[in-house]
């Protein structure tokens, strides 16, 4: 039981960190440009498909990983320069619709190019196999590697935002875009860079998660909605909120699915315990979100409603 629990704990951490890669880009784009981007999930999908295609073509997962970063960032730059840029001064309704339209274009375009069948990514040789963790738990090395990579990216992002010149500009952009434009910062280029950064992080998450599951059209949408829940809980625009929210959602979701059926089994027969437990587990993160909002309508680290 302990090793099972530890395994679920690690899985929670992994899903939380992958969510953070998605949510950090969304929250940055909202915080700096005031844009709600539904097509963020499409960039995740682009990353996964680029990784799968390049890995299949060259035989190297590592080249695939580089490709996922570059393809998602490139898609982000193009979309930002040709479409998203026109939406910054529009109301949220126009942003929702235009980015919903982008999802249709991305999903249908990907289906056109790659077909409807899922692609599979294989784990590189060096990361196959399992490690033995305390409690005699055999845990796949690749999942452990994803956790470490996710942690590294999270630390890197915090350093980028907190310690570099670009980070200063991003934070200044969140505080007052008019002022930093007046101080001579090329605001158009800053927006493109922020959007591309968010896109690259989403693409990287897509490649990681695509390796543990499968790569298919529409894979970005469930993750996108979880990322929305994350940034609503954490407070829109806050990177720290995105991290706390991601971990909270990752743990609540994974542990809920694991523990609730067991909890109901103590006083119900097994089949209805599984049914009720899993139905309730699927709703749990939304209940947590409603509770957080009830107590703090602008999220845990949000500044304004």
């Amino acid at each position: 039981m302990f090793s099972l629990f530890l395994e679920q704990l690690l899985n929670s951490l992994q899903s939380g960190l992958m969510l953070f890669l998605m949510a950090s880009g969304l929250t940055l784009v909202f915080g700096v440009m005031g844009l709600i981007n539904l097509a963020h999930g499409s960039l995740y999908m682009v990353g996964a498909f680029a990784c799968a295609a390049v890995a299949a073509w060259t035989g190297s997962f590592w080249l695939g990983l580089v490709a996922s970063l570059m393809a998602a960032a490139l898609a982000g730059v193009l979309v930002e320069m040709f479409i998203i840029r026109r939406l910054y001064n529009r109301d949220h309704l126009d942003q929702v619709l235009a980015t919903f339209a982008l999802i249709l274009v991305f999903s249908e375009g990907t289906r056109w190019i790659f077909g409807s069948f899922p692609l599979f990514l294989s784990v590189p040789d060096i990361l196959t196999g399992t490690v033995i963790l305390p409690g005699a738990l055999e845990y796949p090395i690749f999942r452990l590697a994803i956790i470490i990579a996710g942690l590294l990216v999270a630390v890197g992002l915090f350093l980028l935002i907190g310690k570099t010149r670009l980070g200063v500009r991003i934070r200044a952009g969140e505080a007052d875009r008019g002022m930093i434009a007046a101080l001579g910062v090329n605001i158009d280029r800053l927006y493109t860079v922020v959007f591309a950064l968010g896109a690259a992080l989403a693409g990287l998450a897509g490649a990681f998660v695509g390796t543990t599951q499968s790569v298919q059209v529409g894979m970005g949408e469930p993750v996108l909605i979880l990322a929305f829940v994350v940034i609503v809980i954490g407070g829109i625009g806050s990177i720290k909120g995105a991290l706390i929210g991601s971990l909270l959602v990752g743990f609540t979701d994974t542990m809920g699915r694991f523990l609730l059926p067991h909890a109901f089994a103590t006083f119900l027969d097994p089949s209805s315990a599984t049914a009720i437990g899993s139905a309730l587990a699927s709703m749990l993160i939304y209940i947590v979100m409603a509770l957080v909002l009830f107590l703090r309508p602008s999220g845990l680290f949000g500044t304004e409603a």
Binding site: I36, V232, P297
Partner: peptide
Amino acid sequence: VYFIMITLA
């Protein structure tokens, strides 16, 4: 934006 995302959620 909160309203949009929460109705969606």
